[in-house]
Amino acid sequence: MNESAECLICHRGLHADEAGRYACRHCTDRIDGNLRALAGPDGLYARLGAQLAPGAGNGGPAVSGSRTAPVPLRLEVLNLMTAGGPVLGPLETWVRDWETHGWAELLEAGTLQQRVDHAARTLRFNLEWAVAHHPAIDEFAHEIWQMRRQCQAQITGERPPRRIPVACPCGAVLRVTLDTTGVQCPGCTAQYGHKEVLRLPMAERRPAAA
């Protein structure tokens, strides 16, 4: 049980009906939405298959209706689709972790798409248990968000969000984006929520070396 009075993900104060949870309801809904976006026949993972051809998803020509992708393939997309890649690999790692607590069941049979769908489904089904009992829910939330962003970037050609250097009162520089939900200062270990970190002053640019 969370002994603090704040969400471990966004570091906002928990409401009375969220007491004891590790994540607020807003962050819980965001995790659920990210898992839902990854899975299913129209989900981000399934849509990666149409991006294997060079130029696809980045203003290039559309992929033909052939089931056989042309060669050479876009290796960054292929990597996202592999069993040990940054989508299915971490999803099943979290399922294994939750399974040790009796709150998930791993399924390693079937196609890669079926395994992604099962992992996302079982993680969503047991999400309420995790936000109430799993102290690494912030790490889990970050990894699921990264999966979604990586898939979206390959499908839409979206560039990663621009990082803004802001200064902590201790003097350390934090590089954050407008989407940053929370961050810990590496210098003084101060915790900042979304609103708090965006209120920090911009860090001064260092002069170029002569």
Rank of each mutant, 00 (worst) to 15 (best):
D138K: 06
P86V: 00
F140P: 04
C170I: 02
E3F: 10
N79S: 13
S66R: 14
D42V: 00
L112I: 13
P61T: 14
P169A: 00
E76Q: 14
T82Y: 01
G43R: 05
T111R: 07
L200H: 07
L106M: 13
M81C: 04
A50I: 02
T68M: 15
E18K: 06
P201D: 10
G193I: 14
L198F: 11
G13P: 04
R12N: 14
R159G: 01
E158L: 11
I31Q: 02
D138P: 01
P169D: 01
I9S: 03
L75S: 14
Q184D: 12
R205V: 06
D32R: 15
G65F: 13
H134I: 08
N2V: 07
A46Y: 13
R205H: 10
Q154N: 03
W103H: 15
R115L: 12
E18V: 09
G193P: 13
S66K: 11
R25V: 14
I144L: 07
Q114C: 03
A69F: 00
C10K: 05
K195V: 03
I144V: 15
G40K: 10
T28R: 12
L14W: 11
W98S: 11
G13K: 10
R199D: 15
I164E: 02
E105Q: 11
R159P: 01
L112P: 06
L14T: 00
L38P: 12
G13W: 07
E105V: 05
L78Y: 06
T180L: 07
L127M: 05
T68Q: 15
A16G: 09
